[in-house]
Design a protein around this nucleic acid. Structure first.
Lengths: 250, 250
DNA sequence: CGCTCAGTTGAAGCATTTCAATTCTTGTGG
DNA sequence: CCACAAGAATTGAAATGCTTCAACTGAGCG
């Protein structure tokens, strides 16, 4: 951990708070040392910060340490699609690694802390620490799986199923990293964000949420989400609550 | 290439016909030798063969050498979403590499030849040939990009834009690997397949295709596709025809 | 206290689906 | 070489799910 970086509050990788989450695989001391050597520093932002901009090149790759963000793409007339939310432990920026420009934007939803890695050194990872390179690939494959699931949602699930599916998807991901307490989780985004993620209009998203709420399947108020009947919700969404979710941390 | 494999017509990696396509990066002799060592054999199937089945584990990973296939996911009631088409040079099967079961199916559309790699030896690739491991990751990132684009389509493009986008997307991919001759390409799938890929009903897909045809933007008949006015089609679809598309071959 | 942004709701319009035939292709057997 | 069956494409009409438009309400903040 270079103490001379321009960022405040550096967390040494050795003490990375994410390591304690049981979803992540255990790293060996060598692996942790290697990552910490690759880590350039930390980037702390407020909410609404644009970390990566569609069409712009980026020198860095990031692991989100704390906070929420999302990846999105937009059409020239402003229509926006949120392609995925970014939670602590998620890795972003790999997509543009060959061509110069990023194909999507990344924006924060809360104050956030990112661990930054120089793109130029990704090659070091492959040549010097294959186990971590393997993890990186695994993370890319995980992202693919999430995108596939979502494509299935947008293409074939009704508004209600899709909404149920997506909320559950986020709930489980948040739960995996310890963000759920007593069945409640903070969702730091608006209905507009959800609408942009599931491909519905804001109005219809709202009506669908209200319907799910009236049926006693969800409760989302003042930014806090919970499900009074997660089993029925999962059934409606065709969501497998039992799927294993262990993964690497980079 | 081991002449004792149970498959007929083995193509040595050194003479892989795909290497001549300019979209793929040049491999060094060492890299080619390494891949050929990893290659277990070839798998030749007829059309309509299920190579990988959602929910089933798979011992192998595949590179498609010849023919067309597609990846898909289905809901319990049979609704199907095609998440991507698979063309020669594409790699499939990475997704399930940690958990046992595949998250999607892969089915052929034509007689096809796949190069097969034992999943158990993927680790060798990372530990012994980092440049190829890097390529593998790059391919995963490319798949992510395609999925992101498609998510944008399903979520935010109208039926007409979406149809135009998808046809163009396939046209360009086919063109990259030399499948386009004099502006014409063989599309070996039905309107139902297209409908399942773009998240529309068969009937509406058909009507949209007819409208595009009447406007002189596309021509798709007896399995042959061409665009009499690719510029206007790309404009309608918000598709960037000029984007660079160089990539690795594994 | 009033401005702004997020959430909520009803009504009208429209894109897409569903239903129901009909036609066209292709392959097969007589 | 023709008749027929099966799958794919095509079309019209009716139904519906989702969007758009247009208010209005409520919460947070200076």
């Amino acid at each position: 951990m270079s103490p001379a970086t321009p960022f405040t509050y550096e967390v040494p990788c050795q003490q990375c708070p994410l390591r304690s989450c049981t979803v992540f695989r255990e790293l060996s001391d060598e692996e942790v040392d290697f990552v910490s050597q690759l880590k350039k520093g930390e980037l702390r932002t407020g909410p609404g910060a644009t970390l990566l901009q569609e069409g712009q090149p980026s020198e860095h790759l990031f692991t989100l340490l704390e906070g929420w963000a999302f990846r999105s793409k937009t059409l020239s007339d402003g229509r926006r699609q949120i392609t995925n939310f970014v939670l602590p432990g998620d890795f972003v920026g790999l997509q543009g690694s060959i061509q110069g420009a990023m194909e999507h934007s990344v924006e924060t939803l809360t104050p956030a802390a990112f661990c930054t890695f120089p793109r130029a050194r990704v090659w070091d990872l492959f040549s010097k620490c294959p186990s971590l390179a393997f993890d990186l690939t695994w993370l890319a494959a995980r992202e693919e799986r999430i995108l596939d699931e979502n494509l299935l949602s947008l293409g074939r699930r009704s508004a209600e199923e899709r909404t149920a599916y997506y909320l559950l998807h986020l709930y489980v991901r948040a739960d995996d990293i310890g963000l759920v307490t007593e069945g409640r989780v903070r969702f730091p985004f608006t209905q507009q964000h959800l609408a942009d993620a599931i491909g519905l209009s804001l109005v219809h998203t709202n009506k669908t949420l209200k319907r799910l709420e009236r049926r006693g399947l969800i409760h989302w108020d003042h930014g806090w989400f919970s499900s009074p009947d997660i089993g029925t919700l999962a059934e409606l969404a065709t969501f497998d609550l039992m799927a294993p979710r262990k993964r690497p941390l980079l």
